[in-house]
């Protein structure tokens, strides 16, 4: 999933328009956080999904697949909010109407925010948003760290995949007990490999002239006035609709 999202972010139709897309996603996020959640959650979630899939060309299956696991967490948390515990006459467990309403509001808001985050992750390459952060004046050391962490994630993911394949080929995942043991071994080994990787990368960068900074050119970008206008206008319009809808349904 990590690789699929990364690949999509670097190849989607909007990948060279990081500035307007970031503004668009920031606008949607502001809407979902500020507008009443019963209207804004579903509305912004659907808008973000449509923008990613129909606008940027993100595969629908990827978008929905990436939403599934976080939605599972959301559902679990929402269910916990619906339950009330009482200790007046021993321990009593019951359903709470107020808790359910809170769960619904929080769940819808979080689901909308999740869709916006995913829209951003699938459409803006990491190099582009790091460049935007640089322009925004984020400290260089933090950006260097971000860049290294992003790259290392994928290098380690390749290592993890090959380790898991190697363990699997020697029946390391044949039973539940073996699965636990193999997973623990793989994690321990991955930790050691990550240290080794870091040392080798440091050597590699030193050989290329690294001293204390990782300067890189900003990636090529393209943005039209129409793109900027849409990126600012659509979230404002959706925000207005969300407030209107909320008033209409009395939320």
């Amino acid at each position: 999933m990590l690789r699929a999202i990364e690949s999509c972010a670097n190849t989607n139709r909007w990948h060279r328009h990081a500035g307007p897309v970031t503004l668009f996603c920031a606008g949607l996020m502001a809407c979902v956080l500020l507008a009443p959640p019963l209207a804004a959650g579903p509305l912004i979630g659907i808008a973000a999904g449509l923008a990613a899939v129909a606008g940027a060309g993100v595969p629908g299956r990827l978008f929905l697949g990436a939403m599934l696991v976080p939605l599972g967490f959301l559902l679990t948390s929402a269910l916990a909010l619906c339950v009330t515990l009482g200790f007046d006459h021993g321990v009593t467990i019951g359903l709470s109407a107020a808790g359910a309403a809170t769960a619904l509001r929080a769940g819808l808001r979080a689901a909308g925010a999740l869709a916006v985050t995913l829209c951003f992750a699938c459409t803006v390459p990491a190099a582009a948003w790091i460049a935007l952060l640089r322009r925004a004046g984020t400290p260089e050391a933090l950006l260097d760290l971000l860049m290294l962490v992003h790259r290392t994630l994928f290098v380690l993911d390749e290592t993890r995949a090959s380790m898991v394949r190697a363990l699997d080929n020697r029946l390391g995942f044949a039973t539940k007990r073996l699965m636990l043991r193999s997973a623990a071994q793989a994690m321990a080994l991955l930790f050691l490999r990550s240290l080794d990787r870091a040392a080798r990368l440091e050597r590699g960068l030193a050989a290329r002239g690294y001293v204390d900074r990782l300067p890189v050119l900003p990636p090529d970008s393209a943005a039209s006035p129409l793109g900027w206008t849409l990126a600012a206008g659509v979230p404002m319009l959706l925000g207005g609709v969300a407030f209107g809808l909320a008033r209409a349904i009395g939320a």
Binding site: P125, A126, A127, A128, I130, M147, L148, H150, R151, V155, E158, R197, R200, L201, R203, G204, L205, A207, R208, L214, V216, P219
Partner: peptide
């Protein structure tokens, strides 16, 4: 090559 490639692109 992973010993020296570090950037986003």
């Amino acid at each position: 090559p992973d010993d020296q490639l570090f950037a986003g692109t």
